[in-house]
């Protein structure tokens, strides 16, 4: 196994004559928390779709968990976890049933699945909610549950697409502590967010503008390079230069 969780070179995707992602090259190390920032329409979603094997690139190369996005999309899907703000939890099933379903999808069976389910319910603190429908859970708990389910199969990488949108500040922090925990276990975390303070929690951050990666470094280094007091300032400096207009 390579030390790199994600490795891209000149990765590009065009739609007609529109270049959504423009020759991006970057590496993400195993176990790293990697913040993937960018303005609306900068190309984050398209890039993310290519890395998760949902969209074939137009040109360039990319390897995720050592697998090629062109040839081994199915293998990649088995080796990654994914959670988005519009969660994938079933509202009309209980947490237990959701866990069992997704566990089943990733090939967990019998005793192993049972044990995993117990473990997960306990680690999220959902003992009292196990028989309630997910619909009735507070938003923050749903997100914690969705995150835990997304890593039920011990993937090498987990992709989080704006995982903390709209939740209260305390839950948001609890969520990030879970991220630290997971990263400490060696799982790579690839995360997008609109909360600029959350960018500071990442080991490294990339900022996309007009389909390109215009900056990539640790938060401290970025602030130093751009002579800014926060990542938000760096972001605003870069995004203001965007030419795409935000169309």
């Amino acid at each position: 196994m390579s030390e790199l969780a994600i490795q891209t070179e000149q990765l590009t995707r065009t739609f007609g004559d529109f270049t959504a992602v423009d020759r991006i090259t970057f590496d993400v190390k195993q176990g790293e928390i990697f913040g993937f920032l960018g303005a609306n329409g900068a190309g984050k979603t398209t890039a993310m779709k290519m890395l998760t094997g949902l969209l074939t690139p137009s040109s360039g190369t990319a390897k995720v968990s050592g697998m090629d996005v062109y040839k081994e999309a199915e293998g990649i899907k088995r080796n990654i976890g994914y959670m988005s703000q519009k969660f994938s939890l079933y509202d009309d099933l209980t947490p237990e049933e959701n866990i069992e379903f997704y566990g089943g999808v990733y090939g967990l069976r019998g005793q192993e699945l049972k044990q995993k389910t117990e473990e997960l319910i306990r680690s999220v603190g959902l003992e009292k909610f196990r028989k309630k429908l997910v619909r009735s859970l507070p938003l923050g708990w749903k997100q914690k549950l969705a995150f835990s389910i997304s890593i039920i199969h011990n993937p090498g990488i987990v992709f989080l697409d704006e995982p903390t949108g709209g939740v209260d500040p305390v839950t948001r922090r609890q969520f990030w502590e879970r991220i630290y925990e997971v990263s400490n276990q060696g799982i790579t975390v690839f995360v997008t967010t609109h909360y600029m303070d959350e960018a500071e929690y990442c080991d490294r951050v990339s900022i996309m503008v007009d389909g390109r990666i215009d900056a990539m470094d640790s938060p401290d280094e970025l602030k130093r390079t751009f002579n800014a007091s926060s990542i938000e300032e760096v972001f605003i400096q870069l995004a203001r230069s965007a030419e795409r207009g935000e169309g």
């Binding site: 960018g38 303005a39 972001f235 605003i236 995004a239």
Partner: peptide, 10 residues
């Protein structure tokens, strides 16, 4: 401003 990037929010 929900779901909008930091620049647009500002």
């Amino acid at each position: 401003t929900t779901g909008v990037d930091a620049v647009s929010r500002k």
